[in-house]
């Protein structure tokens, strides 16, 4: 899955820049997403992962070059490029709370023959709750709706932003399974803080810091490099946690998330990332 170098990437991003309210949140970002498997987009909180995803699909104004399967999509408005075969699962689900589950799904159907069976098989819970207002679902169920909206259509690539954020460990496993199944048929660009999930799913990793790409390569190699992960993700702050992580991988996933949050809130004390501009550091979103 990682020997992709010869095949054409499904997504080719070159020199992507984006600003929000005068602040540069994505700066000259370039990377590729191979035509199969899961590519993880990593980095501390506030380095511009979500902004990068949003800039890719034009939800925030951007400049630069984005090719989907060899065709430029960076001049298209969001709705048009989505129809070219991009499935988007936003951070925080963004289901329509005052619409029913069924309506949320119907709204997302773009193809003549949406894959309802697949979705029903992946998320049987949603069938039972199809008449319920999406706003009254639990966080995990809302994530299912959000994933289902993307999986209903035949996509060339999925952009999935922190699907396990704030979910109970058991649900995290369910989401990871669904992602694994989906990845068998469609390439995925995944933003994920839970490193355990990244280890399990990702082939490649793209690491951001201060709005720039600071590392690309094999995901496992990257996660195994303590030095690099400490510097770029702010994890491994505590040597003992590292030891635990090696012994109990599942628990370590959760630890990694919490320690990365802690690290980002004390960013000033952490060593400055190599490429980050000190002036921009406080300006993270």
């Amino acid at each position: 899955m990682t020997s992709h170098t010869t095949a054409r990437p499904i997504l080719d991003v070159a020199g992507l820049n984006a600003r929000i309210g005068g602040q540069q949140v994505v700066e000259d970002v370039s990377f590729t997403v191979p035509a199969s498997g899961i590519t993880a987009l990593l980095g501390r909180n506030g380095v511009g992962k979500t902004s990068t995803i949003k800039a890719l699909i034009g939800l925030i104004d951007r400049t630069g070059r984005v090719e989907l399967d060899g065709q430029r999509i960076d001049k298209d408005p969001t709705w048009k490029l989505i129809r070219r075969g991009v499935g988007y699962v936003p951070e925080d689900r963004e289901v329509f709370g005052k619409l029913t589950v069924a309506e949320n799904l119907r709204l997302a159907e773009r193809d003549a023959h949406p894959r309802r069976e697949l979705v029903e098989q992946l998320f049987p819970d949603l069938v039972k709750r199809s008449g319920q207002m999406a706003g009254t679902l639990s966080g995990g169920q809302q994530q299912m709706v959000s994933l289902a909206r993307a999986l209903l259509n035949d996509n060339k690539v999925l952009l999935i932003d922190e699907p396990t954020k704030g979910l109970a460990p058991k649900i995290v496993q369910e989401v990871a399974e669904a992602l694994e199944q989906a990845a068998a048929t469609v390439p995925i660009l995944l933003v994920e803080q839970n490193l355990q999930v990244v280890r399990r799913l990702a082939g490649d990793a793209v690491v951001l810091s201060g709005g720039r790409v600071v590392h690309t390569g094999n995901a496992l190699d990257f996660l195994d490099d303590e030095d690099l992960t400490r510097r770029l993700l702010g994890v491994h702050a505590d040597a003992e946690q590292e030891a635990q992580e090696a012994e109990a991988p599942v628990a370590a996933g959760a630890t990694a998330v919490s320690s990365s949050v802690a690290a980002s809130s004390t960013q000033a004390a952490a060593p400055a990332p190599a490429a980050a501009d000190p002036a921009r550091k406080g300006a993270g979103l």
């Binding site: 408005p77 709705w79 988007y88 709204l107 259509n153």
Partner: peptide
């Protein structure tokens, strides 16, 4: 109705 709730997500659904 969906747009009143969250306009950008509607465009993000194509």
């Amino acid at each position: 109705r969906a747009g009143v709730e969250n306009r950008s997500m509607v465009t993000a659904l194509g």
